[in-house]
Simulated assay, not measured.
Amino acid sequence: MLVLEAKLKGKTEQCSLIDEAIRTALFCRNKALRYWMDNRGADRYDLNKFMAVLAKEFEFANRLNSQARQSSAERAWSGIARFFDNCKKKIAGKKGYPQFKKRGHSVEYKQTGWKLSEDRKYLTLTDGFKIGRLKLIGSRDLNFYQIEQIKRVRLVRRADGYYAQFCVDVDRREEIEPSKTTIGLDVGLNHFYTDSNGQVVDNPRYLRKSERQLKKLQRKVSKRKKGSANRKKTIKQLARKHLQVSRQRKDFAVKTARCVVRSNDLIAYEDLQVRNMVKNHKLAKSISDVSWSMFRDWVEYFGKVFGKVTVAVPPHYTSQNCSHCGKQVIKTLSQRTHCCLHCGTVLDRDHNAALNILASGLNRVGHTQINACGEFDLCQVDVSLLGKLSH
């Protein structure tokens, strides 16, 4: 599934109608969740049937396209299914019991309620809200795909305007020449990552760099009178700045992950539990700013696109064990150099961890935790590197 996004340009009245459709979709989602709570044993099909009852009961809900109401019910069920899945896996701590939402940011249509113009530059919404024709602004050309391939259209509200996302049913595969190299990645806060070759990528720290401007805007919001036009205007400025930071993070993660995957046939990385790591309040902001989880998601995605092997390695003792002799060398977080008293190896702490991650990743090839897409031939790996890691 490929998601193509374009910005929407319309009149003020049309934007207000989009907001109303988003609020209605949120109402349907919350009502579906309430129905599940009140009717023990209800499944996803019962929630879909309840949407028809809801449309008869509330006139404004009937204005929303029937399949859009079903999409809202599916959103509610996805939260319910995730809760059941966490309970089955016996995940420690809270299991994520589904909650009611106060704010919505999108409404999703399936294959009805919308229509594209012949030149694919205009989107017309045809449900009961009568939003009408909206212009699509973007660099992605929808003419490459058939209308039947577009399975869903999602309207998204952001701080800088409204966007349309088109979910296209297409299998994205790209053929590239094998690089015959492998790499291990150790992510960190001092550097974004250090690889098994000793190369480092600096941590961009987008939030830290924008923190001064964010604090200034936050102070302006606090000084404005509640409910005033100036306060709403300043809140929008603050939201746009946060949106800029999030886009910078995503752009960096996508480009870095793509470069790493294209340059190597096997990528090994740590299977970090970021959700538990951010419980450390002294490091939570820095960990969230570096976006390890987003980087990992894009590495796995591009691994599927380019047919490369990505391996998630348990992070236990990757920093403590010596990459040359395998002996354990206890180090504190402040010690940035690995000095082995057994074999005399002296390496940067992160470089040593990256070598351990790569060795563990090569050992795990073929096991269930590998995310392999296509065949991987170990003969393609540099023989000298394998010999170095076998010590």
Rank of each mutant, 00 (worst) to 15 (best):
T368E: 10
T368F: 11
S210Q: 08
K180Y: 13
D38T: 11
I91L: 15
G138H: 09
E5W: 04
A353D: 10
H338W: 13
Y162S: 02
V311A: 01
D195G: 05
S78P: 03
Q218H: 13
L54Q: 12
R247Y: 04
A61Q: 08
V329S: 10
S286I: 00
A239Y: 07
S228T: 07
T318I: 02
K236M: 06
V311Y: 11
D85M: 05
N276K: 08
F27T: 05
H391I: 02
Q328P: 10
N203C: 02
L189S: 08
V254S: 02
K7E: 10
R82D: 15
P315M: 03
A159D: 01
K236D: 09
S384D: 14
T256N: 11
L333A: 06
K7G: 12
W36K: 15
L134Y: 10
R152Q: 10
D382T: 03
D297H: 14
R212Y: 11
E300C: 11
V381F: 08
I137H: 14
G41L: 10
G79S: 10
C343E: 04
E5Q: 15
N356E: 09
A359F: 04
M294R: 09
D127T: 00
S222V: 01
G128C: 06
S196E: 12
G303S: 14
M1R: 14
E108G: 01
K220C: 09
D297M: 07
H338F: 14
T112S: 15
Q146C: 03
C322P: 13
S222R: 14
N352R: 12
R212S: 05
P314G: 08
R23Q: 12
C373V: 06
A52C: 07
K56I: 00
A239E: 04
R44M: 04
R364M: 13
F83A: 00
L4P: 03
C322R: 07
V305D: 06
C340L: 05
Q369P: 02
G366M: 06
A229I: 05
W77L: 01
L283G: 08
E174Q: 12
R240S: 00
N190I: 03
F295H: 02
I176L: 14
R44L: 06
Q380C: 10
K115G: 01
I183W: 03
A42N: 08
E174T: 04
Y317V: 00
F129C: 00
I357A: 03
T194G: 09
N356S: 03
M294P: 03
K88C: 05
